[in-house]
Computed example of a mutant assay.
Amino acid sequence: MFIYHDLEGKKVSLSFQPGNFPIPSRHVLVIASYQGETLFTEHRERGIELPGGKCEDGESLHVAAAREVLEETGAYIEDLEWLAEYLVEADEPFCKTVFTANVKEFHPTFSPMETTGAIVLPLREILHRSNASFHMKDESMKKIIGRVIDGE
Rank of each mutant, 00 (worst) to 15 (best):
T41D: 14
T41A: 14
T41Y: 06
T41I: 14
T41S: 15
T41H: 03
T41G: 12
E42R: 08
H43D: 15
H43C: 07
H43K: 05
R44T: 13
R44A: 08
R44Q: 13
R44N: 13
R44P: 03
E45C: 05
E45R: 12
E45V: 07
E45N: 09
E45W: 00
R46M: 12
R46G: 01
G47N: 01
G47S: 07
G47E: 02
G47Y: 05
I48V: 10
I48C: 01
I48N: 04
I48H: 07
E49F: 11
E49L: 11
L50Q: 02
L50E: 08
L50R: 00
P51N: 06
P51A: 08
G52D: 02
G53H: 06
G53E: 10
G53V: 04
K54S: 15
K54N: 14
K54I: 13
C55L: 11
C55G: 04
C55K: 00
C55M: 02
E56A: 14
E56S: 14
D57H: 12
D57C: 09
D57L: 14
G58H: 04
G58F: 00
G58V: 05
G58L: 05
G58P: 05
E59L: 00
E59S: 05
E59M: 02
E59T: 01
S60N: 07
S60A: 07
L61Q: 08
H62Q: 15
H62T: 14
H62I: 13
V63W: 01
A64F: 02
A64S: 00
A65V: 03
A65H: 01
A66H: 11
A66I: 00
A66M: 12
A66Q: 11
R67H: 05
R67D: 04
E68D: 10
E68I: 08
E68G: 02
V69A: 07
V69R: 00
V69T: 10
L70M: 11
L70V: 06
L70Y: 11
L70T: 09
L70D: 09
E72S: 10
E72V: 09
E72A: 12
T73G: 05
T73K: 00
G74L: 07
G74I: 06
G74V: 06
G74K: 01
G74F: 10
G74N: 03
A75F: 00
A75N: 10
A75C: 06
A75L: 04
Y76K: 15
I77W: 00
I77K: 08
I77F: 02
E78I: 09
D79E: 15
D79P: 02
D79C: 11
D79R: 13
L80S: 03
L80K: 06
L80C: 02
L80P: 02
E81G: 07
W82Y: 10
W82F: 12
W82C: 01
W82K: 03
A84K: 04
A84S: 14
A84P: 02
A84R: 05
Y86N: 12
Y86F: 15
Y86H: 12
L87H: 09
V88M: 08
V88R: 09
E89R: 12
E89V: 12
E89S: 08
D91Q: 11
E92C: 01
E92D: 15
E92Y: 12
E92Q: 13
E92H: 13
P93V: 03
P93W: 06
F94S: 00
F94Q: 03
F94Y: 07
C95M: 02
C95E: 06
C95P: 09
K96F: 10
K96L: 15
K96G: 14
K96D: 14
